[in-house]
Amino acid sequence: MGYKARFRVWRGDDADGDLHDYTVEVNEGEVVLDVIHRLQATQAPDLAVRWNCKAGKCGSCSAEINGRPRLLCMTRMSTFTEAEIVTVTPMRTFPVIRDLVTDVSYNYQKAREVPAFRPPEDLAPGEYRMQQIDVQRSQEFRKCIECFLCQNTCHVVRDHEDNKTNFSGPRFLMRIAELDMHPLDTHDNRAQEAKEDHGLGFCNITKCCTEVCPEHIKITDNALIPLKERVADRSYDPLMRLFRKPKK
């Protein structure tokens, strides 16, 4: 059942590094992360990789496999032919720490810049009432496992390092959409903030984020486009312009 696969794994640190070739055993039903672990146990004990749950739930083992952003634990070896060389490299958008481990602190900074859920002041804990149909839209976005593959693939930051300051990326624009659609959030102007503070305008809806999402969240269609529409409504609707509250 097993066979010897050819793997090419990027090894190095922030200064420099290159692809290393390995020949390694693969057994039935295995995923790429299993093979990386076998490399650690048999050939490269100090090969650095981030992982936790090994079940696609924690979003730790993000990397690029044959150039495609993927979770190592959810990429089955059966998706490759036995002859194919499997190339594993770290996420390109974030600085490398070592081997397959990258510095993802950009994402944690952006998370801090999104104003938190503001609970209704007139409701005590236990008094919240919401209909399933109304929470369902935000629930889709809360499936996010924060693997940051969408952030990694988004060309706004992948190809333009400078944009990192002004662009929060699909994950955190989606977070804004999630709060905007929360039935009981009382923070105003979230859509406007997405545009002014988080760079929503950079997004030109190429849907790359949606394509790589391991949770199959429709980031572009269900979060980013509706958010853009809300901005457009507020900015260009002449009536809304008259009644809009001044920005705090």
């Binding site: 938190a116 859920f117 609970p119 804990p125 919240y128 009432r129 919401m130 209909q131 399933q132 929470v135 935000s138 629930q139 809360r142 709060l179 929360h182 959030d185």
Partner: peptide, 14 residues
Amino acid sequence: ETYGALFDRTADGR
């Protein structure tokens, strides 16, 4: 819920 959690709901919204 006051932190922003969104649980599945009953028909009467609880």
